[in-house]
Design a protein around this nucleic acid. Structure first.
Lengths: 197, 197
DNA sequence: TTGGTAGTCATACAGGTGTACTATAACAGC
DNA sequence: GCTGTTATAGTACACCTGTATGACTACCAA
């Protein structure tokens, strides 16, 4: 048997380079040559581990998603476990407040357009996104249903609102239009209206 | 004096071609040659009217913004003029429900990343965006203050929430995750909570 | 009619792109 | 130590990018 390397680790180094470059100069600067230079390897190594540019970007998207989930977990672990606290943590985990989360959001937006465009030509290409959105909605709804909710609150409708609110606020934080504190206040203020204190 | 052409009209034809191409294959397919072909003119004409690629994209962004404002006006004119109705129209005008508004939102997202990246290197480059966000917030707040609001409603906090909610919902409509009807219901449902009926 | 400028086109150029290909180095098993 | 597979590097290729340049056309003022 020949030389053995940790493929996952190598791949992650390279997708990290993609993120770093995107953060500095946008997705269009993440070329094979730039990625290779950033990671300190040859151009061919990028080909070798991903096959094509599309493969590289797909893997990057995947890795960013995984790290976002990890980040969410730490947010949740820091709570008291109540429905309201877990929900708050979930929503706030979307906020781009440090380099990691900024990068995640930026990458998501950068890859968003081509995803939408691709979905127009081939609707089945959008199934992953739909599934994720459904999961997000369900998660929010689940925590809402743990209550206790104020009388007359429509959990389903609130879940839809919160599911859209969180990324909306995230974008404003990302572009420097809103402070993270203001966004968190907005979330808390609205949760105050839903949960019995 | 030599031949005279309507520069604004020519420029708009070309930026329209950029939008059309972006809608079909993403912003990266909107090259000088593709734009020229789409508009049925020579490559040089694009140079002649915009000078550089950056000039073309900047003009495109501007034209899309202008058309969004026009679209908003038609939404508002269709209302009874009450604070609640105008606010609802304002928020719903962000929804990408036809080809025009879909294109506007897609272009906005496509140009968003480089805007954010540019703002990192040069914070002053973000002033326009900040001004627009402030104007949006003020507009929402103004209509809220026309009331009549239910007792205890914090208009300032609600303005921030609605300002983030509208584009958040818009993104879900754009990527096919949510129907426009569901988004409108979400907006109306929340406005019901703010305004006295 | 004529001159001069605005507009238009075709083409050239230097540089960058993703990818294919070939050759070499490193290592695990025999 | 040898062997065969994996990993890595270097390079070449065809194509596309934005931009610069020079020639040609259409028009209006004189």
């Amino acid at each position: 048997m020949p030389k053995k390397v940790d493929h996952d680790a190598r791949r992650r180094e390279l997708t990290d380079a993609v993120c770093q470059l995107t953060l500095r100069g946008g997705l269009e600067t993440a070329t094979f040559r730039q990625v290779a230079t950033e990671a300190g390897v040859s151009v061919n190594q990028v080909q070798y581990y991903f096959g094509s540019k599309q493969g590289l970007l797909a893997a990057t998207q995947e890795h960013v998603g995984e790290r976002s989930i990890e980040r969410l977990m730490t947010w949740i672990e820091a709570t008291d476990g109540s429905g309201r606290a877990v929900l708050g943590a979930f929503l706030k985990s979307f906020a781009p407040i440090d380099e990691d989360s900024r990068m995640a959001m930026l990458m998501y937006v950068a890859l968003y357009t081509e995803g939408v465009v691709a979905a127009m030509g081939d609707p089945s290409a959008n199934e992953t996104r739909k599934t994720e959105a459904q999961m997000m909605h369900d998660t929010v709804l689940e925590q809402l249903n743990r209550g206790p909710l104020i009388d007359g609150i429509d959990a389903e409708a609130e879940a839809t609102l919160l599911t859209a609110l969180a990324p909306g606020l995230g974008l404003y934080i990302l572009d420097g239009t809103m402070s993270a504190e203001a966004a968190f206040e907005t979330i808390d203020h609205h949760l105050d209206r839903l949960f019995v204190v």
